[in-house]
Amino acid sequence: MEAYYNCLHCMNRNVRILTKDGGVHEGTIVNVDQQNVYLKKGAGKRVTTSAFYPSPYPYSYGGREEILTLSLFTLLAIALI
C-alpha cells in the first residue's frame, strides 16, 4: 500500500523508479491503481527490461511516447527528478 500512496503523491511528475530486479526507469506517472503504476516514457526512451511492457492505456501521445505498466509489487523506490 505504501507504493500506491507514493505513486499517487508523484502523479504527473517526473520520477525515477527503481525496481527489485535492478531496473531503473525515468518518466512521468500518468496514472496509478491498486496493482499498477503507468509511466509515460519520453520520446526516444525505450524499455528493454522484460518486466515492463507497453500498456493498452487509453491515452495517446502522438506515438512518440510510450506508456508502460509496472506492477506496484516490483517497486523498490521512487524519486522525483
Rank of each mutant, 00 (worst) to 15 (best):
M1L: 14
E2I: 07
E2A: 12
A3N: 14
A3L: 08
A3D: 12
Y4Q: 02
Y5F: 14
H9D: 15
M11T: 04
M11R: 11
M11F: 10
N12W: 15
N12A: 12
N14K: 13
N14D: 12
N14Y: 08
N14E: 12
R16M: 13
R16H: 06
R16K: 13
L18H: 05
L18M: 08
K20Q: 11
K20V: 12
K20S: 08
K20P: 00
K20H: 12
K20W: 08
K20A: 05
D21E: 15
D21T: 15
G22K: 08
G23E: 04
V24W: 00
V24F: 02
V24M: 07
H25L: 11
H25N: 06
H25R: 11
H25K: 10
E26H: 12
E26C: 10
G27T: 02
T28W: 06
T28I: 14
I29E: 01
I29P: 02
V30E: 05
N31R: 08
N31P: 01
V32Y: 01
V32P: 00
V32G: 00
Q34K: 07
Q34W: 04
Q35R: 13
N36W: 05
V37E: 07
Y38F: 15
Y38K: 01
L39P: 13
L39A: 12
L39R: 07
L39T: 10
K41S: 12
K41G: 08
G42E: 13
A43G: 02
A43T: 04
G44L: 06
G44P: 01
G44Q: 02
G44C: 03
K45I: 13
K45S: 08
V47H: 09
T48D: 07
S50Y: 09
S50W: 10
A51T: 11
A51Q: 10
F52D: 01
F52W: 07
P54V: 04
P54A: 03
S55T: 09
S55C: 10
Y57I: 02
Y57F: 14
Y59T: 09
S60G: 11
S60P: 05
S60D: 14
S60A: 11
G63L: 00
G63N: 01
G63R: 00
R64M: 04
R64F: 02
E65N: 06
I67P: 01
L68P: 03
L68D: 01
L68M: 12
L68A: 06
T69A: 14
T69P: 06
T69W: 00
S71Y: 05
L72N: 08
F73V: 13
F73Q: 15
T74H: 15
T74W: 14
T74S: 15
T74V: 14
T74I: 15
L75S: 06
L75D: 03
L75H: 07
L75P: 03
L76P: 00
L76I: 03
I78H: 00
A79H: 05
A79L: 01
I81E: 08
I81G: 04
I81W: 01
I81F: 06
